[in-house]
Write a protein that binds this DNA or RNA. Structure first.
Lengths: 155, 155
DNA sequence: CAAAACTCTGCCGTTGACGTAAAGGTTGGG
DNA sequence: CCCAACCTTTACGTCAACGGCAGAGTTTTG
């Protein structure tokens, strides 16, 4: 995202955060960050020479994404790995797409692939929203009945 | 719900299901049903003289509700206990409301109480739906971009 | 009425997502 | 240079939501 090379092994751009700061800003614990890394969900953008993890803003975004997928969609970390993998793949595709060397046929295939990934996820989310909407409809009906009763009898 | 007394201790109305049948119909395990009972979420409507659990259709509905609250809203069983408690309370209120002996002032109070309970839950659900909607909007934007690219270049 | 099938109450095991503590290495201010 | 604060890996602990088994009792079926 920044112009830097892929996963800097050298010391940091100064803008990178230690695990403590990153955890605080992301609203999770250090343990969680290490755990996500252990599962291959999130590799810190850098390490110091001494071996300490350094997190970028993009890394924080990724943490936020993980939490969102957890709490909003109720996915477990393995499923989240798949979704994030898809999103990473989409970025790769984007890169290849804008590469001059990619021929039109391949470009089309890449677009279709990322479309498939996004559409698939959309299905999951839409199903969930539909169920939630039903839930809300029932709830609103109940609230409406009570409100009407109140209005009729005690206005 | 049926005309029977509260939580029949005697033998069953014949329409009640054994734990095995109930579990199969509800799509959960017997262990889960016993666990829900242990947590006070679901007391089987009856027991045989020998002490075996008997589940009614209403019990099955309750299981479905529990699962819904779990998967849809991501509540844990303790939180579900609260929600179900509120719903039970609403039923009590309903009963008292239609009781001749309840005076108007009390009736109003009862209505207001159940309104508060329902409205509170609605808040939780609505927040979740809003978050999901945002999620969907982002996703749709991404899909739209890809689709447009496809249409422009490869129509 | 007996065998087969089902269920009962413990009670210990498992899985996911971390928590927490130990024993040491790294970093930055004075 | 030194020390306090922060970080490292390693490894065992925890909590929710059940899974699964043993040993005994119950219900059903032939």
């Amino acid at each position: 995202m920044t112009g830097s090379s892929v996963t800097a092994v050298t010391d940091c751009d100064e803008t990178l955060l230690s695990i403590g700061a990153a955890a605080a800003r992301a609203g999770v614990t250090e343990r969680a960050l290490r755990y996500y890394q252990e599962l291959g969900l999130l590799n810190p953008s850098g390490r110091t020479k001494g071996g300490m993890r350094r997190y970028s803003e993009a890394d924080l975004q990724r943490v936020a994404r993980i939490r969102e997928l957890q709490t909003l969609l109720g996915l477990n970390l393995d499923e989240i790995a798949v979704v994030l993998g898809n999103e990473d793949r989409t970025l790769q595709i984007r890169a290849a797409y804008f590469d001059e060397a990619t021929d039109p046929t391949e470009r089309k295939r890449l677009l279709l692939e990322s479309l498939a990934l996004a559409t698939d996820l959309r299905g999951t989310v839409e199903a969930k929203r539909a169920a939630l909407d039903d839930f809300l409809t029932d709830l609103d009906a109940r609230i409406e009945r009570i409100t009407t009763a109140l209005a009729e009898k005690f206005n």
